[in-house]
Amino acid sequence: MDLIAGDKNEEQSPDPIRQCAVAVLVLLICGVFATQVGKIYVEPTDAGIGARGLPVFVLIAGGLLSVILLVLNLPDAIVMVRKLASRLAWQPLTRLVALALVAFGYIWAIRLFQYAIPTAVAMSAMLYLFGGRGWVRLAVIPVVSVAVYWFVFFVLLGMFEEPGQILQYDSYSLALRIRQSIGLQ
């Protein structure tokens, strides 16, 4: 069983492990949100259901349905997990974690080094993760892509590039000059 890619017949049969995973996910989210219900301000003069009415109803419904799903599927899920434990494939999960790290790392790097350099590096890392090799894929495509993104979003659409905390450069003046030269400003 592939943890990430899933089974081939999953379209037809939702298996008990996945059903339990749904229940746990919703229970977790409802649990986190339930801690905040008490903080919702309720207008004393509100004659209707108030600001807390629908959130409480949704949390109860979510919790209740999750518990039912869990109760219905947990015994079968335990049996399945024991059977499949030795056949679980972890390799796709590693790639997924790597991609998530690239995503969060990219956002963090933009804050520090502004848009262009982190975008080129992230694009290169992404291409590598997707199996791209060679200098054309890992160097030329990222640089060209960044140039295209920069032109479309910062020149044509006139967006402002947030300055980096460590590395700062003035791309706005250049974008402004290009906008003026092509008659956009």
């Binding site: 905040q36 919702i40 301000y41 309720v42 207008e43 509100d46 600001a51 959130p55």
Partner: peptide, 8 residues
């Protein structure tokens, strides 16, 4: 939407 109080 009515009281403008914070929710979640």
């Amino acid at each position: 939407p009515i009281t403008a109080g914070e929710r979640f």
